[in-house]
Computed example of a mutant assay.
Amino acid sequence: MVMLAITCATVFANFAVMLALWRVRRAPSHYPLMSLVAADFLVGMAVLPIAALRELFVFNLNRVICACWSTLDVLCCTASILSLCALGWERYSGITAPLARAQRARRARTLSILVWPVSALVALPDAFIPSPKSFHPGELEKACDVNTNIWYVFFSITFSFYVPACMIVMQYGFILRALSSPPPIRAHRGRTVSPRCQKMDSTQMNTTPKQKSSNVHIQIDNNQKTNFLERQRRATRMIVMLMGLFFICWTPYFVILPLDSLYDIVSDSTWAWCTWLGYVNSALNPFVYAAASPSVRRVLQYSYTTSSSRNNEIPLTQRIPRA
């Protein structure tokens, strides 16, 4: 029942987020987020059913089916963490270049597309490299064993987990540094100020027009910087929660995998707990989107309550308010 609940939550929650993001016009953050959601959805549809059956029953499957299943497993895991890298890059770009929206969107789309062929390069060898099989006395053979070929294990975990994990940690450091000293946000030339700022005493305007104008611009810049920082911190909070959840769920698996390939010391129960802890990550991610970001909640609510939502834009971060 627990495995069934995890599988259903993974499929339906990620499908809901995927459909919501598809029905609204793309913001830069939507592209890597859609890539992450697609990877989690594939886990629920193609990986978890067989993973649950092989834990509960003893049966054999065709070698081609097992090769496709194990390849999809590695593909989706690699795509998830690479999508997190793309999300981290977009968040850093959103902080350092908030007005370059079109350029950020093009790069985010390109990175999100590249996630999948790179993930495929890591996953495809799993279908062709044989895995050594060793059974302990009294142990029941499971269908579709995890590939424990030493060379492939270290190749896959390097590019599926450890290198992207280091990149994510570095990106988080860059994001924190960028948030500590954000770029100046200024109004475009020709933009009018608010009526409240236009109410000036006629005597002050005649005597000190330059000083008053300078004070108005300083007030506008300070307000924009404050709003900018708050929005970026809210958006960054979701990315940090996704990163932390990924590390909590998948680190045990990527620790026991090389240990077992080298020394064959991991029990079946440990394998099951660590593997399904990783799968739980795919079920929890959509709830992180909704809990950590009010903007994602607005996307979900708006896309399912408005028939014309495809023609409207609801970004994951609010726009910079006009002065």
Rank of each mutant, 00 (worst) to 15 (best):
P164S: 03
F155L: 09
M200H: 07
T148A: 06
S156D: 10
S131D: 05
H188R: 05
S194T: 15
N149R: 04
F161G: 06
G138V: 02
R186T: 15
W151Q: 04
F154W: 12
F159R: 00
T203I: 13
K133N: 03
P183Q: 13
D201C: 15
P182Q: 14
P183T: 12
F155I: 12
Y162L: 02
F155G: 10
S160F: 00
S131G: 11
W151S: 09
C197I: 14
Y172P: 00
Q171D: 03
R186M: 12
P130V: 08
Y152N: 05
M200N: 09
F174W: 09
Q171G: 07
V153C: 11
H136C: 04
R186G: 01
C197A: 15
Q171L: 15
V163F: 08
F174E: 09
N149W: 04
P130M: 08
C166I: 05
A143P: 09
V169L: 05
T158Y: 00
P164W: 01
T192L: 14
T158P: 04
T192I: 13
S202W: 05
N147A: 14
A178R: 07
G173M: 08
E139R: 01
D145V: 14
F154T: 05
H188E: 11
N147Q: 09
K133Q: 10
C197T: 11
K142D: 11
P164C: 04
S194E: 10
I185Y: 11
F128G: 08
M170Q: 01
G190R: 01
I150D: 02
V163D: 02
A178C: 08
I157W: 02
R196C: 06
H136E: 12
P137Y: 05
I157F: 02
S160T: 06
P130W: 04
M200F: 07
A165K: 00
L140D: 07
G173D: 07
I168W: 00
I157H: 01
R196H: 09
A143H: 06
